[in-house]
Every structure is written in C-alpha cells, then in structure tokens.
Amino acid sequence: MPEPAKMRKPDVKVVILGDMNVGKTSLLHRYTERKFKDTISTVGGAFFLKQWGPYNISIWDTAGREQFHGLGSMYCRGASAVILTYDVTNWQTLAELEDRFLSLTDTANSDCIYAIVGNKADLTDSGTHRAEPLDGQTEQEGVGTELQPTGGGVGGGDPAALLQKQVSQEDARALYNRVLRYKGMEDKACPPAERLCFETSAKTGYNVDELFETIFDMVLPSILKKRSQGTPSTIDLEECRVPKSTKAGCC
C-alpha cells in the first residue's frame, strides 16, 4: 500500500483563536486560497493541512462563538503557535482575547509562540489603508477587481464608510506582553512584541502572508526538535499500520 505510506503527517500545529466575526476564517482563506470571500460562521473547528516547503503544518481554524468553547482546549492541545485575532475596529474583541481565549491556550506547548493579530485594517483610515490599493495592485490585480461586489456585503464592511480604529498597535503590544507574563515566559528568550503583533486585512491581503510566514518560520525550530526527538505527543495511529518507521525497524 504505497498511498498510506505517503500520508502527510502534520509536523506542527497552529491554532487561530478570537471572537466571532473578527475574520479568522477569512484570514486563513486569504492565505491558502489567495482570495477573500463571504464566509459562514464556523461551526466547531475546521482542520486544515498546509504544505509549507518540506513541512506539513496543521491549522485549526476555530469558531469564535461561545457555544463552542468546550472544545477550545482540545484544539489547542500541543499547539506550537496560537494566533490570537481581534478586530481593529472593535475594542471588545481585544478584551475578549484576554478574558475568554487566553485560558484556552493552557494546553498548548510550553514553548508555544503567540501572535496578536488585528484584522480588518482596511476598514480604518489609518496608515494601513493607504497601503491597501498598492498591495492589491502588486499581487492581486485580478482578484482585486473581482472582490468589489462581494466586499460590500460583509457585515458593515462598506468601503465608503471608514470606521474609527479602536485598537492601537500599542494596545496589542501591551496585550502581547501580558500574554507572556501569564505564560510565565517573560524571562525566556521570546521574540519581541514588534515581531508578533500584526495588523492585517484579509480583504485586501495586507500583511496576511507576512503573518503566516513569520509564524511558520518561528515554529521551525519546534518542528526540527520534534523530528529529531521522534516522540509524538499524540497517539500515532499510522505507526502501527506503517511499520517502516525508524523505531520499528529492529526486526
């Protein structure tokens, strides 16, 4: 059976958390499909396997609704990176990250990387907005035009009406530092807030690639560590079916 032997096994796990309607699914969709479309509220969690160079990265796109909180810790178990997402036009979504979502990450790896991401940057009139048309032209010309009709339909995302930006970069960085403190990781060599606080726009694509690429780069050491140790933290069901791994090679 050659097929199962080739089965992709995730090397590392990334979880996207955040309040409902901040654009978690849209961010992931922008990164994987290179486009922005209307999404339906996620139910439970959606599991994706992303090929990144020679590595397989599993991504859990979770539902932001309180209804599904029970599974939050399951999604986060053994995660190497957690993307905490908020909406820059809604202060409450940043507060929720600390109140509701941070505790869900208790089951993540001890060396887990945390990113704080403010999505919907295109809706505000700050500096990011100016970057938008430029961004759209350079890499997404075809998609950019096709976006116009769907864009207006997204909850309050009327391009004409720019919203007040409610969350500043400083607030996000302050939260990042509080996250590290909560995790007891301040003294460890953690990446500085500047590197892990992003403002993105799933709609225009602004900063989305940078976000995911940065995170994947940063989890690389944990992939390599895991590969060299060869000790899977989850029960590997494939192992018993594919007895050609290095450990089982004794007889």
Binding site: I40, G45, G70
Partner: peptide, 17 residues
Amino acid sequence: NLIGASSAFQAGEIWTP
C-alpha cells in the same frame, strides 16, 4: 441540515460538538 447550511464545511475537516 447542518451540513447543507454550512458551506464552511466544504474546506477542511470539521470537528464539532
């Protein structure tokens, strides 16, 4: 109905209570 009403299911694998 749950499957039909949730086009989000069309990508990825869903795990939900």
